[in-house]
Amino acid sequence: MANRIMLNETSYHGAGAIAEIVTEAKARGFSKALICSDPDLIKFGVTAKVTDLLDKAGLAYAIYSGIKANPTIENVKDGVKAFQDAGADYIIAIGGGSSMDTSKAIGIIINNPEFADVRSLEGVAPTKKPCVPIIAVPTTAGTAAEVTINYVITDVERKRKFVCVDPHDMPVVAIVDPDMMSSMPKGLTAATGMDALTHAIEGYITKGAWEMTDMFHLKAIEIISRSLRGAVENTKEGREGMALAQYIAGMGFSNVGLGIAHSMAHTLGAVYDTPHGVACAMMLPIVMEYNAECTGEKYREIARAMGVPGVDAMSQAEYRKAAVDAVAKLSADVGIPATLPALKEEDLTFLAESAYADACRPGNPKDTNVEDLKSLFLRLKAD
C-alpha cells in the first residue's frame, strides 16, 4: 500500500515571518486579496499586522470578517459573495481554524461552482480543481489548518458539524509566526494547545498511522508537553514551541486521520457550542482509556514524550495509565475543565449517533458503536 504525504508548497516559520506574505504575493503575481479574519482579530489590531504590510507594499485587498468561532454554512456563502464582489484572485486567511476553514470552503466553491451547496462538500468531495490560492496565517497554536487538507463547517439548522477532506483545499503558503499568536488569552491558548495535543495523539494511534507520521506526532507530543504551560503564561519559549509543535502535528494527522475524540468534540461543539479545543481536551483522556487495548506499545512512547520518567521499567498497564494521567494533568494544569455541566442525558442518543457518523470515527484504533459512544459522553457528567 502506498502512503501519501501532502504539505504546503511553501511554509515560513519564526518571529517576523509575516513579512514574507508580501514576497509571496508579488512572486506569484497576485493582484487582490480577500482577507478572511474574525471581528476580534480586527478589533484588537492583529489583522492590521498583515494589512499594514500590504498597504506599505501597495497590494490591494478587501476584508471579510463575518466569521463565527464555529464557522457556518452561511459564513461560507457570504464569503463566496465577498470574494466575487471584491474581484479578488487569492485569499489571505488570518486567524484560527475558523478563518482558515471558511477560507478553504470559499476557495473550493469559487473554483468548483458545482459544489455551491456547502453541504455537498462533506466527506471526501470529488472536486476537480484546486481551490483559490490561500496564504494561511494562523493566530492560534492548535488547529494546524494551515497545513491540513481538512476543514469543518457547522450546519446550524441540523445542529451538527461536518468534516470535509479535500486535497484541493491545501493552502499554498503557510506563515507560522509566533508573534501573531502572542495576543491569545490564556483560555484560548490552553484550548488550542490541547487541540494540537489531541491531533498528535490521535494521529499517532489512528489506523492509518505509519513510520513517517509517527515521527511527526511523537515530536509534536514532546514539544507540546514542555511548551504549553509556558505558552499559557505567554513566555517567548512557550509561544515558539507551540507554534512549531502544532504545525508538526498537522503535517502528520492531515495525512492519516484522527479518531473519536475529534468525532465527539465536533458533536459537542455543534450541540452546546463548546469550544473545539476544550471539547477535545475533555474527551482525550476518556477516549485514550477506551482505546488503550488496541494500541500495542504506543502509550509507552506517548508517556515518554510527555516526560514521564522510568517508562521502560513499567508494565503495559502501568505505562498506559501513565500516558493517560500525563495528558489529564497537562489539561488540568492549563485550566481545562474535566466535565461539561451543559450535557443533558436526553441528548446522549443524538450526540452518539452524530459522533458515529462523523468522518473522523473510522480512523479510531478501536472499532466503536453508538452505545459505547453514549457511555463515553456520559463520563463528562459531574459526579
Rank of each mutant, 00 (worst) to 15 (best):
S103A: 03
L244R: 09
D372V: 02
G259D: 02
C164S: 15
A141P: 14
E114K: 13
L59Q: 10
A249K: 03
G241K: 02
A209P: 09
I67Q: 03
V50T: 02
R379M: 11
A322M: 05
E114R: 11
K159D: 13
S225C: 12
V147S: 14
L41I: 09
L121H: 06
V147K: 10
G252H: 04
D52Q: 13
K128E: 11
K56D: 12
V334C: 15
L53S: 07
S120Y: 10
K104D: 08
L197V: 00
G142F: 07
V370I: 15
E122H: 11
N255P: 04
I42S: 12
E371G: 06
K219P: 04
K186W: 10
D117F: 12
M184D: 08
S98M: 04
S254H: 02
K366Y: 05
T23G: 07
I149H: 13
L59T: 04
L340V: 09
H199C: 04
T368I: 05
G14M: 02
A69F: 00
H168P: 02
I286C: 06
R361T: 15
E346F: 06
G123F: 14
A326S: 15
E20R: 15
L330I: 14
T274H: 06
D312N: 11
I110R: 06
V124D: 14
H266N: 13
I221V: 15
G363T: 10
G257I: 02
L378K: 14
G241R: 10
N3S: 15
Y61C: 02
I42N: 11
A105K: 05
P178Y: 07
A281M: 03
N234P: 01
P309V: 12
T267K: 03
A145T: 09
M306K: 03
A25T: 13
I109F: 05
M1K: 12
D372L: 04
L7M: 07
P167M: 03
N364G: 08
V76R: 00
D169P: 02
D38A: 05
A200N: 09
N369T: 05
I91T: 01
A141H: 13
E301M: 10
L54I: 10
S375Y: 10
H276G: 04
V163G: 12
I35G: 06
L380V: 03
D40L: 14
L228Q: 14
K104H: 03
E345Q: 13
G58Y: 01
I201R: 04
G45P: 00
S354M: 08
R320K: 12
E146W: 01
S254I: 04
Y290V: 04
V76D: 10
G259E: 00
M100A: 06
L218M: 10
Y90G: 03
A62D: 09
P337I: 11
G95F: 00
M282L: 03
T139A: 02
S120G: 08
Q316V: 10
L373D: 07
K159E: 13
E222P: 08
P171E: 00
L268C: 09
T192I: 07
R158D: 14
D55T: 10
G123K: 02
